[in-house]
Amino acid sequence: MNPVNYLYLAALLFTIGATGVLIRRNAIVVFMCIELMLNACNLALVAFSRMHGNLDGQIIAFFTMVVAAAEVVVGLAIIVSLFRSRHSASVDDASLMKL
């Protein structure tokens, strides 16, 4: 099997994640889709690392994970505070530039 297939899989997962971001209204699900996209990128990076025969790709994937963790913390905090003020987790409800 050609390792390029990992890249195709990553592309597929990324596209599914991106489409999910656009389709879903629930902020939590939207967030999950973003995580899916990040993971797809990580898969591609790991595959690249193997192709090139060095560990830089894995390093980048590692940093991506760290950043994703930070992002999740802040993002979920935002969702919680949004839910508190609006009693809804729908991103469409936040369509005005005021509460």
């Binding site: 991106a18 971001v21 656009l22 209204r25 991103v91 469409d92 936040a94 369509s95 005005l96 530039m97």
Partner: peptide, 13 residues
């Protein structure tokens, strides 16, 4: 400019 973040996301994408 309808205010929906998802519409903007579509434009970006």
């Amino acid at each position: 400019q309808n205010g929906f973040a998802r519409s903007y996301a579509v434009s970006m994408f």
